[in-house]
Design a protein around this nucleic acid. Structure first.
Length: 574
RNA sequence: GCGGCGGUCGUCUAGCCCGGUCUAGGACGCUGGCCUCCCAAGCCAGUGGUCGCGGGUUCGAAUCCCGCCCGCCGCACCA
């Protein structure tokens, strides 16, 4: 009944509704607006908070995971260590004459010059100047190429050398504070740490109100796991189906997803980590609970060149939004031990965890030993420092000689090295936890939720069929007419209900108009006080979705509403 | 960032090509009142726009010209 025929422009309709009724709108409107920033109104805040609550319920509370909150601004050192300073940037070519700026690699490609993926700024600058590439605006051909970080840069305190960055993801806070979080969690493993907060990315071109933002809210969960252990929550979900577009499929241009059971996806190696698979299932259910049907969801495997620098495998959870196409609402990444390892190295602080193994294990270990240091020094000369760095890191690796051969170009047989076998009894396993990260963009979730709730009834009546448990306003109360003491009685009901629900009271216009007004903002239930209420203390309870009405005793109203507004059983969301 | 198109009450829009008749018109919404025993009904009275911003041309600019901002579509980008 809720029609889908206006699918094509539903995005515009949703944005218009959001603005008109106060969910959200472009920020700084009175100054002409600034792209990439938006403001939330009352309904928007309430909707957002309900989505956050649902997320916490599913992702955090259900597993006994922890919540933290860390700063939005971090020092240079943190983002240097995390790899963002080096990777989170674009090459920009600046015209030496007019000062205009372009993407250097695009400029080259547009001029028909081949440029490799990892070309340095010097190489690109050389190519631009060497080939006489002209500035599209002023025609000159003197270029300077620099890297432009996509992070917002700022200063911390009055000292200009103390640069800081606005975090591009909340995740780093959880890695940086890992040591203390781990201790306060009494060294629990697996350990899930969640953070809801803002992230900032200085996007080249923000788009589409809530889709590409420069400042936005994220809900991120970092699950620190023992890489040798699977995910115990997966039990019972092995046959749950996921719609995958794998890296290989994407490469072949196959965009129709493969529907495959979790167990099969894991055993065929399509998903490389059990925890990742588990969160994909959870993610699918989460979006279903927000009103996005399963056939409007898919998981898109990111090829290496599109993945973040820290990721071994990433699936974007995409949902179809009518009028927009497939939109990424979450990134589910297997970050391995990249971040903890990087911060450990950069800070010099030990971020390993150690766990007592079930049984003491006798392990045969092999390691390389230097027989004669003086001789080594003589042979290597000034390569010694580099050798020792590699040696410290890889002395346990059987293939160390090959590594040295390829890195230093030295014939290993000439070095005074010997392989030493050792038998050790180990009670404790020390490792960097491997991290699985489901990360959600809150604004996109809101947009997806609103889009799939949006419908038109009887030609022109907008009905926002939000799932009751995320509706910003949960119940509306109306006096049927504005005399005979009905408004007074209705206000009593409002006072009572306000203790437990977000309530809206309205006595303006006809009853039909009032129902229409609340349908439009997704209020799932309306209570109407009429003359009979004065006689027998019953009211009508009207449902937004089918317009049905039932008569409810005022004494039972709150419990009845509580029931209607509760979360459905998770199993029913498959 | 590039190319194309666009920006007029809260919303949708008329007017722009062919400057003056526009102190910018309408519909819906919103506010107050009347009426009303259940789905945007009716009546009365209100409310509301320096026409995205800035500059120029002109006696006169929503209308013509330039710059900027914002939006949409395509390309690119997208941790």
């Amino acid at each position: 009944m809720l029609s889908g025929h206006l699918e094509a422009n539903i995005y515009e309709k949703v944005v218009e509704l959001a603005r008109r009724r106060g969910f959200f709108w472009t920020a700084y409107e009175i100054y002409g607006g600034v792209g990439g920033f938006y403001a939330l109104g009352d309904l928007g805040v309430k909707l957002r908070d309900r989505i956050v609550e649902l997320w916490k319920q599913l992702f955090v509370k259900g597993h006994g995971f922890l919540l933290v909150d860390t700063p939005s601004i971090g020092p240079h050192s943190v983002f240097k260590a995390s790899g963002h300073v080096d990777n989170f940037k674009d090459p920009m070519a600046e015209c030496g004459v007019c000062g205009r700026k372009y993407r250097a690699d695009h400029l080259l490609r547009d001029s028909g010059i081949r440029v490799s993926e990892g070309a340095s700024t010097e190489e690109m600058e050389g190519l631009l100047n060497g080939n006489g590439v002209r500035c599209p605006e002023c025609g000159s051909s003197r270029w300077r190429v620099r890297m432009f970080p996509t992070m917002f840069e700022t200063r911390i305190g009055p000292y200009s050398e103390s640069t800081g960055f606005l975090r591009p993801e909340t995740a780093q806070g959880m890695f940086v504070e890992f040591r203390r979080i781990y201790e306060t969690a009494r060294e629990r493993m697996p350990l899930g740490v969640a953070q809801i907060g803002r992230g900032f990315r200085n996007e080249i071109s923000p788009r589409q109100t809530m889709v590409r933002l420069r400042e936005f809210n994220m809900m991120e969960l970092e699950v620190f796991t023992n890489p040798e252990e699977g995910c115990r929550y997966l039990a019972g979900l092995e046959n749950e189906e996921l719609a995958l577009v794998t890296e290989d499929m994407a490469k072949r241009g196959e965009h129709a997803p493969l529907t495959i059971g979790v167990h099969d996806a894991l055993s065929q190696g399509l998903i490389k980590n059990e925890w990742l698979a588990y969160f994909m299932v959870l993610s699918k259910r989460f979006l279903r609970l927000l009103g996005v049907h399963h056939d409007k969801q898919r998981f898109w495997g990111k090829p290496p060149e599109e993945r973040a620098h820290y990721s071994q495998q990433t699936f974007d959870h995409e949902v179809l939004i009518p009028g927009l196409g497939w939109v990424e609402v979450a990134g589910l990444a297997y970050r391995t031990d990249y971040d903890l390892r990087a911060h450990s190295k950069a800070s010099g602080k030990d971020l390993h965890v150690s766990m007592r193994t079930a049984e003491p294990k006798t392990e045969k270990m092999m390691r390389w030993r230097i027989k004669d240091m003086m001789e080594l020094k003589e042979i290597l000369g000034d390569k010694l420092k580099e050798f020792m760095e590699l040696f410290e890191e890889h002395k346990d690796d059987e293939r160390f000689p090959e590594l040295i051969g390829s890195r230093l170009g030295i014939d290993v047989d000439e070095l005074p090295l010997e392989a030493e076998e050792k038998v050790e009894t180990v009670h404790v396993k020390r490792f960097y936890p491997h991290v699985i990260e489901p990360s959600y963009g809150l604004e996109r979730l809101m947009l997806a939720t609103l889009s799939w709730a949006y419908g038109i009834r009887e030609g022109n009546r907008i009905v926002l069929s939000l799932p009751p448990y995320v509706a910003p306003i949960q119940v509306a109360v109306f006096p049927l007419i504005t005399r005979d003491g009905l408004p007074e009685k209705a206000k009593e009901v409002v006072r009572k209900l306000s203790e437990r629900f977000d309530v809206l009271y309205d006595e303006g216009g006809s009853i039909g108009r009032r129902y229409a007004r609340v349908d439009e903002i997704g209020v799932p239930y309306a209570v109407t006080v009429d003359h009979r209420t004065l006689e027998d203390n019953t009211v009508t309870l009207r449902s937004r979705d089918d317009w049905s009405q039932i008569r409810v005793e005022l004494g039972e109203l709150e419990d009845e509403l509580e029931e209607l507004l509760s979360l459905p059983n998770l199993e029913t969301t498959r």
